[in-house]
Write a protein that binds this DNA or RNA. Sequence first.
RNA 1: GGCGCCAUCGUCAAGUGGUUAAGACACCGCCCUUUCACGGCGGGUUCGUGGGUUCAAAUCCCGCUGGCGUCACCA
Length: 482
Amino acid sequence: MVKVRTRFAPSPTGYMHIGNLRTALYAYLFAKAKGGDFILRIEDTDRARYVADAVDFIKDSLSAAHIVPDEGPDIGGEVGPYVQSERQEIYRKYAEELIERGYAYRCFCAHDESREEKGFAGYDRRCRDLAPEEIEGHLAAGDSYVVRQKMPLTGTTSFTDVIHGNIVIQNSEIEDQVLIKRDGMPTYNFANVVDDHLMGVTHIIRGTEFITSTPKHVLLYEAFGWEMPAFVHLAPVMGKNEDGSVSKLSKRHGATSFAELTGMGYLPEAITNYVALLGWSPKSNQELFTMEELKAIFTLEGLSKSPAVFDYAKLDWFNGEYFKKMTDFDFSKLARPFAGELTEELDKKWLYLCGLLRTRVARFNQIPEQIAFFRELPAYEAELFINKRNKVTPELAGTILPAALTALESLPDWTPYAIDSTMQGVVLRSGQKLGTVMWPLRVALSGQKVTPGGVTELLYLLGQEESVKRLEKGIAKLKEMV
RNA sequence: GGCGCCAUCGUCAAGUGGUUAAGACACCGCCCUUUCACGGCGGGUUCGUGGGUUCAAAUCCCGCUGGCGUCACCA
């Protein structure tokens, strides 16, 4: 049995799109599930679109997502180099072989865009049948040329896709594609086939956009007499538009790169977990998976044929689940950069605060708005003191607040425990229910009805001095009202 | 436009001729509760459409519609 080898072959033209990340993930998981190898190959044959930092970005994203190539640039391997621009001689050699054997030819005609506009191919078909002496003539004159593959004019070409089954295309639909460009670089369609063969790739896992060009690849494999790999064409990742329609995930749908997502405070593990399930099903009800689990159970059978819409709400849920499984300490470390500038008080009690935040936020970038009221008491309406459910009236609040203030301002040690027992006393003496007493306190301390943590926690985090100040302010506000 | 691919709740999806058509997210309601969160319980005319095939169709076939992709010296 041949060892499974898969590859991820991005072109360094930008950042790591979430769709690409998913492709890489599936290729990686499948290789690992089969005990095989996963290769990273950089397809940089388009000099015009090359982006300098893109390769580093790809590597960083893969490593942050815990997708680790067995072979690749920097890593090495027996079938390198793993950067296509460094393999030019190899492609040239194979192109020559094809020309000699009559499967390809040199095309000297100038690329003609006007011809394309009229609906014709952008080249002159006659080059296909140029006589040897004519070719010699062009060569001697130093004319530039591209190498084109000589496609069959009749018949069909077919291949079996693991996800889609048998796919048949009329050869008349296929043009004499360029193999080697005028600048000497190979085209994707050529380099890809040569590399996949030379690198021993057994399963080609890539996006559906390549499905229609696969027959061209098949013809190349056949011309060389190479063994055909398995083709696995993944359905695309879509984004939801405002009008409810869907289109390929792009900027206007929100964050689309792995780095943007982690920048928003999503954990790499959560992103990977969610993305793994976007277009693939374990065919069980389990949704939370570690990378190790995925590596053990991934199968091609679970891949779906139809496009999947990226759902940020579900990603939020996954991320929240990962937060719940973390320790407060780990959370506090990772969350700190998102918190912005903290008051001295809050900075000291950061770990304590994180214990409250951890189950209340879906991603780190929700933290600033959650804790903004600590730094500065927001303006609030006195009506906020009224709460039907807890039977809080302005009059009642007017007696509760001063009672709490008196008990609290004389408290010698400001610890959660001391605060808690003091408040228990206040509740007891008031003869009211717990919720009734706490409500006006929360409002006075935070200026809002929703807070991370209960009143005891708020008091502790705010510190005695600030708590007292805010309580006094609340009392004053109530007086105006009554 | 030609060619190709796809079509189960709003979203991710299970389902491979006979099921009350799972589960999750989201949404709505209720309960619990020191707000929120957490947790618990419950809810929703979901198989695009029209024809076949069959005793029986979400499952098989054809048409239609819709979506997506592709027709580069980009990948």
